[in-house]
Amino acid sequence: MVKITNLSKSYNRGAVKAVDNLNLHVKPGEIFGFLGPNGAGKTTTIKMMVGLLNPDQGSIFINDYDNQRDPIAAKRSIGYVPDSPEVYDRLTGLEYLDFMANVYEVSPDEKKKRISYFLEMFDLVDAANDLIKSYSHGMKQKIVLTGALLHNPALWIMDEPMVGLDPRSSHLLKELMREHCDRGNTVFFSTHILEVAERLCDRIGIIHKGKLIAIGTLEELRHGEHAGTLENIFLELTEQ
């Protein structure tokens, strides 16, 4: 579903390597957790995957589409939730969702069904007709999440999706992620909440200073020279 090969990205004309020769393969049906300290290169990688940044080197295949050569097809396979919910503040929640559904060419019936489903699920029905600027951070996060999932994309790419969500919504999202993958789809998300990654992810990748320093299932990571909880593994790896 996601195939990243020799991906590199640097800033300041090569002075700062944000992502350094990254190779990654995420299979269909997988929840993949992308971990790393602040500034490790997680968001840069995600932004390159969704087309917000151009890589210096390497390729990214999304659902078998090269996101540089065939960006539209690649983007159609993606539902992207950014780290900070950036939404049109001066639209109502419903107008925003309607816009997203239309852009992704969701059929009218499907659109109606899915918007109602998510609004109900995230408890946004009462707020749907209000301007987004009146929403709390969590509500904005939920409306962005809904907008990203309306077209039922095969790959969800989420940058810190749990931040700002209340426990109920966070729980619902985790269930949705699981169900989505059980249907053969893929979730790629970054997080700092290691307990979530530990319980939810099928595989985990840890990036540090732009390099992928570990990848595998939790068991595989434990079987290496590191042992214990994901927190211990993470701390040991990123302190080196």
């Binding site: 983007k75 159609r76 993606i78 950036e86």
Partner: peptide, 10 residues
């Protein structure tokens, strides 16, 4: 709105 529009299939 750039960050909203660029990831869309437009």
């Amino acid at each position: 709105d750039i960050n909203i529009l660029v990831p869309l299939p437009l």
